[in-house]
Amino acid sequence: MIALAEIVQKLNLEVVGSAENLDRRVVAGYASDLLSCAMNRAKKDYVWVTLQSHANVVAVASLLDLAAVIITEGNRPDDETIARAESEGVCLLLTPKTTFTVVGELTALGVRGEPEQP
């Protein structure tokens, strides 16, 4: 399992929201722009890749206790959303890259769509 800090460094991501959990281990990844799908499929300690930057992204990440959310294509949450991420302990990672590119890079780092079986 890879640490969030290594993903941030290798993918050159901008950290906003809460940066207190960068030593957290990422167990798997999920990508979708429909928040209802993320709510059903992403799980605790997943990294979620989406181009949505709406405040509900923070709500979903907090609800599911995700390791982080990678927000793609240069989309930037508003200040209120970032403040909420800080207060809820949600790590938001920003990048100008597309979701396709980010998922490819995560795969190259060994992050899969399902957690490894112990």
């Binding site: 722009d33 429909l34 928040l35 709510m39 979903v60």
Partner: peptide, 10 residues
């Protein structure tokens, strides 16, 4: 709203 944003935003 519910499909794309998962829940009614505060």
């Amino acid at each position: 709203l519910l499909a794309n944003l998962g829940m009614v935003p505060a």
